[in-house]
Design a protein around this nucleic acid. Structure first.
Length: 352
DNA sequence: AAGCTAGACAACCGCGTTCCG
DNA sequence: TCGGAACGCGGTTGTCTAGCT
């Protein structure tokens, strides 16, 4: 890869920042503000690349950052949002004032993932492991190529399987003999469904936060959106809403999409929802305004609006249950389609 | 006391997107 | 319209530290 010009110098310093460097950085920003990071090292007298300066500022030096540990409310919000939109750390961090995407990401990777696993919940799908096991057993008999399925199981689940050997000896043994690593490009943190757009993601977050303020926390709204959002276009910028090529696809998806297919029982309920009231109301308001802006943009561009809120509220919401078509089923269906379409390629990669 | 290990977190890397001349 | 630079994001790696043997 070609290094950015600002990072091209051999004498650029790497590694941890010293207090002296921090002081220089702070002095520079307080005087000139942020922006044009490539010029910052020179102007601030730092032997760092601009990228490193920006990172240090955004992740550590910014005065509005919290440096204390995460609260229970923050923790629960992260879990809910991760369930709703996957590992979109920057978006999640926006809902946590004073936290950066790096903070949230690190906290998730070091604490929350483990915590969920210990509670018997798969941190990727946010479903109880037992349910995933049940799904697997249910579908297992009809599979012609079980090795294509196991790739869907993420490493947390596999780890959990390892620890559950006593409870599920037959299945674990089955998996251990048939498991093959997923293809390099196979998404493991999301579900591989076709893209939905930023709007759907924002609506997902709104639903999550609003659900937490009301009494309907029994519904796993977050998981409902996983399928629509976590494999959305890699770009979350508003421009993707204006993409003409995606508009028709978006309309089709909106027509064919059924939230019910992805609704599950809530796997992670806050111990005391009332504690979150203020925080959730705050986030809900923020999202309402964000939504209004986005919806305004969409109207002006004549892009069909996918109204996930209405979809859920109107008819399908009350029908959600874990015995409906599940997230795992949807993944497997997609997997089947891909296999049929690229059978030659997949055969090669699976049976090596 | 020394060595080892795991956890926490800071920082880097690579890549996609956006901006701008 | 195009190409390069800048920016932003998510995944990964590196470093430090506390606890254990």
């Amino acid at each position: 890869m070609v290094r950015p010009p600002c990072c091209d110098k051999l004498n650029v310093k790497k590694g941890l920042w010293t207090a002296e460097e921090d002081a220089k950085m702070l002095a520079y920003v307080s005087k000139h503000g942020t922006g044009n990071w490539s010029a910052v090292p020179k102007k601030a007298g730092l032997k760092r690349c601009g990228k490193s300066c920006r990172l240090r500022w955004t992740n550590y030096l910014r005065p509005d950052l919290k440096h204390d540990s995460f609260t229970t409310q923050e923790e629960e919000l992260i879990v809910k949002l991760h369930g709703a939109i996957g590992s979109r750390w920057s978006i999640i961090a926006q809902q946590l004032p004073g936290r950066t995407d790096n903070d949230v990401k690190n906290y998730w990777n070091t604490k929350l993932r483990k915590k969920l696993s210990e509670r018997g919940i798969d941190p990727v799908t946010h479903k109880p492991f037992s349910q995933i096991f049940a799904d697997y057993v249910n579908i297992g008999g009809g599979l012609t190529k079980p090795t294509t399925r196991i790739g869907c199981l993420n490493r947390d689940l596999k780890n959990a399987l390892a620890s559950k050997t006593e409870q599920f000896p037959t299945m674990v043994s089955h998996l251990s003999t048939q498991a093959t690593p997923p293809p390099k490009n196979e998404p493991t943190e999301d579900n591989g469904n076709p893209s939905f757009e930023l709007l759907a993601q924002l609506q997902a977050i709104k639903l999550v936060t609003e659900a937490s303020t009301s009494n309907c926390t029994n519904y796993n709204l977050k998981t409902a959106i996983v399928s629509s959002s976590s494999s959305a276009s890699s770009s979350l910028s508003p421009s993707c809403s204006s993409s003409s090529s995606s508009s028709s696809a978006q309309a089709n998806l909106a027509q064919n999409f059924c939230w019910r297919d992805f609704l599950l029982e809530d796997a992670f309920l806050p111990p005391d929802a009332s504690q979150e009231q203020n925080m959730m109301e705050f986030h809900s308001e923020r999202f309402t305004s964000q939504m209004q802006i986005l919806q305004g943009e969409q109207k002006s561009e004549q892009v069909p609006r996918f109204d996930g809120v209405q979809s859920i509220q109107s008819s399908n919401f009350e029908a959600s249950s874990s015995h409906d078509t599940s997230f795992v089923d949807a993944m497997l269906h997609k997997d089947n389609e891909m296999f049929l379409e690229f059978s030659g390629l997949l055969e090669e990669s699976i049976y090596y």
